[in-house]
Amino acid sequence: MTKEIKISINQFADFSKASDSKKRTIIKQQKNPNKFLVSWYQLSKSRIKKSIENNGDLDPIIKGIEELKGRIPKKPRQVLDRIVSIEALQRYIHIKLPDMLKTIPYETIKKVESKSVYINGVEIIVSPDVIIRIKVNGKTYLGAVKIHVSKSNIFDNIQSRYISVLIKKYLEEVVAKDGDKVLDDLCLSIDIFGERIISAPNNISKAITEINVICNEVKSFWNAA
């Protein structure tokens, strides 16, 4: 199994629906990542992550909005980042998290052996934003969340489902230990501007077949780039 070909999970979702020219751009970015590229919406993402880690507590979100409103951006990029980040946090407030995340105490897993899952010779970097462990009646259940914040690039249901399926496969293959059960309902792709949460289906075989086909395309574009 080659470890040379790799793509992040959100870029994989992008790739699945992209035009050929956009696919080439995605692969070039994955092959030669810009080490100095600053991520967008860092504060909003970190506050959403904190909220999920704390059983859906909205206090980190409210404080994040207040902090952003108090900032005085100096560059056009910072102005846009501030505007979109505030809107992202406001939209998150109206997203309905699964009841289980708000009613059952859980702990989060910080250290994992790998952030990736390998499918059809492609390393897909899943790197969940939050990995959840719930213990009930002596049994351990796992779930994980991937957060997508982009106003101009909203994932559709199929793209979001690919993400939740890859989360499930990642948990089963990398995180789960003997006796751990991965909960489909807690393998979550959250698209903030799409205002949707998609969980993994009980049977992921169809989606995995489709993901295998996309991986073939990733390899083809990778070798041609």
Results as ranks from 00 to 15, higher is better:
38 V>G: 05
92 Y>C: 01
57 D>W: 01
163 I>N: 01
160 S>G: 15
76 P>Q: 11
174 V>L: 07
73 P>R: 01
67 E>T: 12
144 A>P: 05
50 K>N: 10
76 P>C: 10
39 S>N: 15
54 N>A: 11
124 I>G: 06
47 R>F: 00
69 K>M: 10
45 K>A: 05
120 N>H: 12
43 L>W: 04
111 K>R: 13
107 E>Q: 11
156 D>G: 13
139 K>T: 06
172 E>N: 13
76 P>T: 09
120 N>L: 10
153 N>Y: 15
96 K>M: 07
62 I>D: 08
54 N>T: 08
60 P>N: 05
37 L>I: 12
139 K>E: 13
111 K>F: 06
86 I>G: 03
169 K>T: 12
127 S>G: 07
79 V>S: 00
154 I>S: 10
152 S>E: 15
67 E>L: 09
172 E>W: 02
132 I>Y: 09
81 D>T: 08
132 I>V: 14
159 Q>R: 12
35 K>G: 15
52 I>V: 13
171 L>W: 04
133 R>V: 03
175 V>N: 06
45 K>C: 03
74 K>L: 15
71 R>I: 02
104 I>W: 03
72 I>T: 13
37 L>S: 14
106 Y>G: 02
144 A>R: 08
97 L>I: 02
68 L>V: 01
164 S>C: 09
176 A>M: 05
75 K>H: 14
55 N>G: 00
103 T>S: 15
83 I>E: 11
157 N>G: 11
162 Y>I: 04
141 Y>H: 05
56 G>I: 08
40 W>P: 04
79 V>I: 14
106 Y>N: 03
99 D>A: 12
46 S>V: 02
151 K>P: 02
173 E>N: 11
133 R>F: 00
176 A>C: 06
55 N>L: 07
166 L>T: 05
72 I>M: 00
88 A>F: 02
141 Y>N: 04
78 Q>T: 10
144 A>C: 10
65 I>A: 01
73 P>L: 03
103 T>D: 10
66 E>Y: 07
82 R>G: 00
121 G>Y: 10
79 V>M: 11
59 D>E: 13
136 V>T: 11
36 F>N: 15
35 K>V: 11
139 K>C: 01
142 L>P: 05
60 P>L: 02
101 L>M: 15
129 D>L: 08
77 R>K: 14
38 V>A: 14
116 S>H: 09
59 D>P: 00
78 Q>R: 07
87 E>A: 06
44 S>N: 07
38 V>R: 15
45 K>E: 12
48 I>W: 03
35 K>H: 09
165 V>W: 10
